[in-house]
Design a protein around this nucleic acid. Structure first.
Lengths: 155, 155
DNA sequence: TGCAGATGTTCAGCTTGCTGAACAAACCCT
DNA sequence: AGGGTTTGTTCAGCAAGCTGAACATCTGCA
């Protein structure tokens, strides 16, 4: 590994001056990235995993899924398309409202979700970086709630 | 605004069961999203803003910038291309090592960065969602440092 | 009944992440 | 000096965000 030069050495100091949004973005990328190889092995993605998580209990319409996953309808459309291609969900149109596409998890979907969750839990050990992990998560959740309500989304 | 149905109403509860990476990802998207319109007005993006931030002091090679911004060289290549197109930076090859492309900020770049920072600081008020904002940021930074070191990046 | 507006999904096209591969320039070692 | 390796950048192509627009279906009201 190459010796970083002077400018690169003060990386940690530098990041202090970043806006919070960018800190969140980088942290998300790095944390999710740690797990990408495992998911790829399973033919799954982070977006797909959360989507599966939401249809475990009962089939949902794509729009409902989009709201739950905090993405646009268009993004959810592509995510479900990919999940269907992989055989993890089935899509069918609602008899009572044929505009709606219902999404139901398949046995393969349940299985892969279970595996992914187990492996994720195991790799989560490294998050000892954060002192009070539960509080940190609560703050993230509070942040999401506030921004969601205050017009960041679905206002 | 439509009345959310039952399943959608327990959104806040649901998010508690998400993996931390996904929480970070959604939070990042929502927080950065609040500011997208302002940046678009300035012909700037979040990625571009952080890049400008790093060349304010002195010109840097693209690879150095990539390390500082925590992105791959390829991503930085495209980001600087866009910044150059907008006139916020100038790229030129290093005389002493003609493999390197040096990136220097332009007067227009300094100006737009200043404006973006001011507007961002103002809009940051809403982050009162988090109790101990400084501690929260410190934890994000610690997380980034740990994951960066432990092979999430440049190992 | 029939038409206007609301709703759910998809299509097209953009940005910004990523990886893998290509390529030129520089470095190093004999 | 020459040739293999390293280094810095770019190209190609994929995933998953986004917006705007198109399209089909449903709802509601005259």
């Amino acid at each position: 590994m190459a010796e970083p030069d002077e400018r690169v050495r003060d990386m940690r100091a530098d990041v202090h001056s970043w806006p919070t949004g960018r800190l969140l973005s980088v942290a998300a990328r790095l944390v999710e990235g740690r797990f990408d190889a495992v998911l790829a092995e399973l033919d799954l993605t982070h977006a797909g995993m959360i989507t599966l998580h939401h249809v475990v209990r009962e089939p949902l319409a794509q729009r409902e899924l989009a709201v739950l996953c905090r993405v646009t309808d268009q993004t959810m459309s592509r995510t479900t398309e990919r999940l269907e291609r992989s055989g993890f969900i089935r899509r069918y149109s609602d008899d009572r409202d044929r505009r709606r596409t219902l999404v139901a998890i398949t046995p393969a979907g349940r299985k892969v979700l279970k595996t992914a969750r187990r492996e994720e839990r195991e790799s989560d050990v490294l998050l000892g970086a954060v002192d009070d992990y539960d509080r940190f998560r609560e703050q993230l959740i509070a942040l999401i709630a506030v921004v969601t309500d205050q017009g960041g989304f679905a206002e």
